[in-house]
Amino acid sequence: MKPEFWSSEQVMECSPMARLMFIGLWNFCDDAGNHVASAKTIKAEIFPGDDISSADVQRMLDELSSNSLIAFYTNDSKDYLHVTGWKKHQKIDKPTYKHPPYSDDARRGLDESSPPEGNGREGNGEEEKLSSLRSDSSDAGGVDLLGDGAGQGERPDLKTRKTDRIRQIAEDARGAYNATLAKPHGLLPACTVLNKPRLKAVEKALPTVRQLCQRLFRSERVTPQFWALYFETAADDDFHSGRQPGGPGHENWQPDFEYLLREAVIAKLADRALSEVVA
């Protein structure tokens, strides 16, 4: 591993524990860079003595996937993962293959992460809890494990699909924000342009958003319904809706689209609302 690995843009987007797990995966993948996509198995292999749950591991896997460091795929109804850029950086004299080969045809959709193990239900009614918030590669990712050009091997078609999907999620978020919180419906400034910083803000929020979608809808796919419920939640809060001014020296400050996309803000509003429902 070259030192440049740590400054790779894809790696820097991940949390420190996700980076550690990513490196750990290299020890347990077969010689084609493939591994079963089982959070329980990976937890036992990489974190056998740590207070880290299978759910934590699944969240880190989704984080790696969202940054194109791994790609999920399915073979014979079983889920696997593939470490991106594997062939480019691993030189193995006599390779052996334990798992089915990765292919674009077998790859799961960008937002089709596996449900938690042992849980195949399609819903648990907690979408009502969120509405009460008012009262979620090989050639696909091209990670540069050795630091000689991170991401340069990414296939244009898959890269375009990911970019288009993020833009669609951002469009859904913008529409819900403008319809609920922006003038003339609310007090906040409208989001009129989805520029690069705003698209990046949406992308960075996805790990938290997907967790919420998984809890509420039993699917990590981010839908317009989630954004409508989330911004309705913000509209019911005096501070996040702009009805309550900022603190001393910041009396004229108001939340905006990018601020409300911060993971910490999303988590705080969700925690508060879901706690109120449980209480």
Rank of each mutant, 00 (worst) to 15 (best):
A140I: 14
R107D: 06
R19W: 01
E63V: 00
S114H: 07
I70R: 00
E9M: 05
S137N: 15
A150L: 07
R108W: 10
D136L: 04
N34V: 10
L133D: 04
A150R: 15
R155H: 15
K78H: 05
L25S: 00
G120M: 07
I92K: 12
L145Q: 14
V57K: 01
G125C: 01
G151P: 05
S68D: 07
D50S: 08
T41Y: 12
S53P: 02
D79S: 09
K91R: 15
G109V: 03
D111P: 03
R134I: 04
I42D: 01
S53M: 02
N34W: 02
D56N: 11
G142S: 11
A140V: 15
T74C: 10
L69S: 05
I52Q: 00
A44N: 08
G151I: 06
G49L: 03
D93R: 14
H99S: 06
I70K: 06
G141Y: 04
D76K: 07
G151V: 07
R59A: 07
K94M: 08
Y80M: 11
L133A: 03
K91N: 14
M21W: 00
D144V: 02
S113M: 11
S54E: 06
E63R: 00
M17G: 01
A106Q: 13
T96Q: 12
D139F: 15
